[in-house]
Computed example of a mutant assay.
Amino acid sequence: MTRRRCALTVFWVGAAAVTGLVALGYLGGLRINLTPSYPLGIWRIVPFDRKVAVGDLVMICPPPTSAFTLARLRGYLHSGLCPGWLSPLIKTVAATQGQRVEIAGSVSVDGVPLAGSELRAADGEGRALIPYAGGVVPLGHIFLHSDFAGSYDSRYFGPVPAAGVLGLAHPVLTIHP
C-alpha cells in the first residue's frame, strides 16, 4: 500500500469513527449548547416521566414561527434538527397554561415578579426587541425564561407549545463563560 493510500485510509476511518460517535451521542440525547443563556458545553436530554412544571430546566424545539425565523437571521439561534432547521433552546419554565404573565419593565407571573427578567429595548447590535404583550398562557403552552440579561426568551417571543419540549436539560460537561 502506498503512503498516500495509507494516509487516506487512516483519514476516512477516523472520519467514520468521529461521525459514529457524534451520531451515538445525538441518539443518546447529547446536545451542545453554544449560547450564553446557560453554561456552554455538552448537555443531555432526559425524557420526562411527568408533566412539565414551573422551574423545570428544559430543552425545547422552538416552533417554526416568524419570531424564530428572525431570531435565526439575527444569530440568536443556530441551525439544528428542530422544525425549520432550528437548534433546540435550553430555558427554564416560568409559567404553564392558565398562569397570567404581565410584561412591563420586567416580567411578573401571577403577580409575582420574575427575577432577572428586565426587558431590553434593543439587542447587542442595537436592533429593536419587541416584548410579548403578556396575558394568560394558553392551553398546551409554556412561558420560558433565562435570567441571563441578553437571553432571547418568552419575554420577546411569548408562550410556546409544550409539545416542543424534548426533555429535562442536564449538564454533562459545561463551562461558565
Rank of each mutant, 00 (worst) to 15 (best):
L81Q: 10
R120V: 01
G124F: 06
L57D: 01
T65C: 13
V137D: 03
R120M: 11
L70A: 11
D56K: 08
R120G: 04
V136F: 05
S108E: 09
S79Y: 12
G111R: 09
G111C: 13
V107S: 05
H141S: 11
I45S: 00
G124V: 09
A53E: 14
H141D: 12
G98V: 14
A133K: 12
G80L: 06
G135A: 09
G111T: 12
R74S: 02
V101H: 00
W85D: 15
P63D: 13
P131L: 08
V54D: 04
A53P: 00
S79W: 15
F48D: 00
G98C: 13
K51T: 12
I45F: 04
A53Q: 14
V137S: 00
R50E: 09
P88N: 07
S87R: 02
A71I: 06
S146E: 03
L89H: 05
L114V: 13
G134L: 01
T65M: 11
R74A: 05
F68R: 00
C82Y: 05
H141V: 02
S108Y: 02
D56S: 11
Y76W: 13
V136S: 05
G135N: 07
V46H: 07
D110F: 10
I142T: 01
A104E: 12
V93M: 00
I42E: 02
G134D: 04
A121E: 15
D123Y: 06
L57T: 08
G135H: 07
D110Q: 12
I142L: 10
P131H: 08
G126R: 13
G41H: 03
S87P: 00
G75K: 09
V46D: 08
V109T: 02
T92R: 10
S108W: 04
R127C: 12
E125P: 04
R127A: 14
G134Q: 06
V112H: 03
C61W: 03
I103E: 00
L114N: 07
V46I: 14
L144A: 06
L70P: 00
T92F: 02
L129F: 09
G75H: 08
H141E: 12
L114I: 12
L73C: 09
S87Y: 03
H141A: 11
L73W: 11
L81G: 05
L144S: 01
I142N: 03
M59Q: 06
L119N: 10
E102V: 11
I60Q: 01
R44G: 06
R72P: 01
D56C: 13
V109M: 08
G124A: 14
E125C: 07
G126A: 15
K91C: 07
I103A: 03
E118N: 14
A122H: 12
V136E: 14
I45Y: 03
G135K: 06
V101G: 01
S146M: 07
I60S: 02
I90Y: 03
P83D: 07
K91A: 03
A122Y: 07
L73N: 15
D56T: 10
E125Q: 14
L57A: 10
L70K: 09
S66Q: 15
F143I: 06
A71V: 09
F68Q: 01
I142Q: 01
I142P: 03
V136W: 06
